[in-house]
Write a protein that binds this DNA or RNA. Sequence first.
DNA 1: CGTGGGCGGATTTTT
DNA 2: TCCGCCCACG
Length: 739
Amino acid sequence: MYLDAILNPLNEAQRAAVSAPLVPVLVLAGAGSGKTRVLTHRIAWLIQAEHASPYSILAVTFTNKAAGEMRGRVEQILGVPPGVLWIGTFHGIAHRLLRLHWREAGLTQGFQILDSDDQQRLVKRIIRANDLDESRWEPRDVAWFINSSKDEGRRPQDLKGGNDPTRAQMIRLYGLYEEACARAGVVDFAELLLRAYELWRDHPELLAHYRQRFRHVLVDEFQDTNAIQYAWLRLIAGPDGHPFVVGDDDQSVYRWRGARVENMQQFRRDYARAKLYRLEQNYRSTAAILMAANGLIAHNSGRLGKTLWTNGEPGLPIQLYAAFNERDEAEFVARRVADYVASGNRRSDIAVLYRSNAQSRAFEEAFIAGRIPYRVYGGLRFFERAEIKDALAYLRLLLNRDDDGAYERVVNLPTRGIGDRTVETLRDEARGAGISLWKAAAARSDVQQGGRTANSLRGFHRLVDRLAKETAGLPLHEQIDVVLKESGLIEHHGREKPSQDAARGETARNEARLENLAELVSAARSFAAESTDLELPPLDAFLAHAALESGERQSDAGEDSVQMMTLHMAKGLEFMYVFLCGMEEGLFPHQRSISDLEALEEERRLCYVGMTRAMKHLYLTHAEQRRLHGMDTHPAPSRFIKEVSRDIVAEVRPRASGARAVAAARLRREQPAAPAIRFRTEEPPPPGMRLGARVRHGKFGEGVVLNVEGSGPHARVQVNFEQQGTKWLMMQYANLEPV
DNA sequence: CGTGGGCGGATTTTT
DNA sequence: TCCGCCCACG
């Protein structure tokens, strides 16, 4: 591929970023501005123009999906054989490093990965084992403390309790948790990152090797990095490196789980030579949608500053619907969806977005009533299902008998007469001797030859040993097949309950579980076929895969259906038509964020993310009455509605309230009000004052045109200044010059 | 050992 | 209101 071919498909800003010199680079990439394209083309550029070896490239993302897309596109552009480039998630890459250097990292060779559920169970066991009150020490809170400590790079010994007994206890539990993990040979997600960081930090020779190798480090969604991820990046890039990071501070919506937008500002401080590029041209949405989004996000402070613009259609104004209640809101959306579908649109081009999952219910009911196929995202994913985790627990035991979490999960599944009492004594014995449950039980059933429980335990151990022996050397999917059958798991779920006719629902659930187990076998088959990872035995690799890529959500795709999801899940996606629902104070912004400025600004960013998902039409809806936790509330419309310039909003019908609204909601076939949109319909905007143009003002400095009203000397422009924020100015007096 | 009723809590979620 | 979890009972 020639250099022209790399640069030609790009706009000027993208081209500048892609062909930037080998210095640290921060790309501020707005929503829909072609950020993935810039990353992939940058990689191509490094290889073609800078003659970088494909082996010298390390590209990091947050999700497997993003990593997969990036890898696909790079390999397509360059024709590089798969697997040469290190493209992966932070966790995936950390995992790979730890497998390669498990000894230096202080891990066991066959270490396994705990998902958050496994982690919480383990924390709970530790709390119980220490006779602590679970309501005082909630496993969720303790796990959160442990994870956020790790995210900050802190080990128990780095933490001080001070005068705070609660904190001191948390630190103690963190320490006990670490010991339990070490004993069982397991690591949680945060541990992967922290260990990978410590591995390099504490082994200069290793670090030197990898620095030499990965000369080119690229990072996607940089605004989502947490402290340890950023520290890790700085280690690998080194003081003289040139990391290429892409992010959007306006789309930072994961502060609550440790992401630090400040890393973007910090990056510029840490790398004084860093160059900043802005991608502001948007290829996704209409001008109306972008103006609404720009106007909203301008209310946030401390932004790096960026305004989206487009050469495309002005588009329809944002439609605002004030519903009577959540049912009316859902019925309105359902009617609009039906209209869109009737005029030939695909249902999958339509998205219903909301702040919290509970809101989906009303929409589901309306869609069912209207016979509109829909798909709700969220909920359990494949590898998180109970029956799948049971099966995985057996597989984990095959590799590592000391995995107490797995042991407890299946020691009595299917039931084999090993009750809570037995397990409890086992736990005590194991803890007393500082050994695993497996070892404790093995010691015991040897001693007490005769007892019934001892027999059961021995039976279980023999089963596991036998499965290990029988499956050794078999292809992966056959290994799993054998384990499923001989462990009794299949029979357990397949067992009919003949006596009860009423148990039909149960039969259906059982069937679904059996299907899932069958799916596990076929997932293993295709995993083995596709996996190029030769560094790990297949079963180890498959278990890591199951933990790190928990799989698709809800697989019953196929039929064209309306997409329903939370705003967080919608990040990174795009839809022709977007309904942003539940725009109410207390719901969005959420009650818990209203009194904290930082949290409130994050809610605003979330709203910005939601709005910028829409390509053609955007609806904002709110309800005047809503049932929340069983109580009727009368929430005020979200402040975010008011923060969108009124000029680009059209109310779907005149706001009604009270009794009138009841009738109106029932009777009115709502018609959109005459569009209130006033920008560039008849008259062209003043020269140089194109939407999104950069301008300079004598006093306020540089800014970007958000909005233009009228023409000639009476025209007014709304400008978002980098320093001063958003202002309306009269063309006549403002003396704006195009930049 | 499995189930039903009482109780408390109820953003957002990837890895 | 509704869901998930814990405990007591059969």
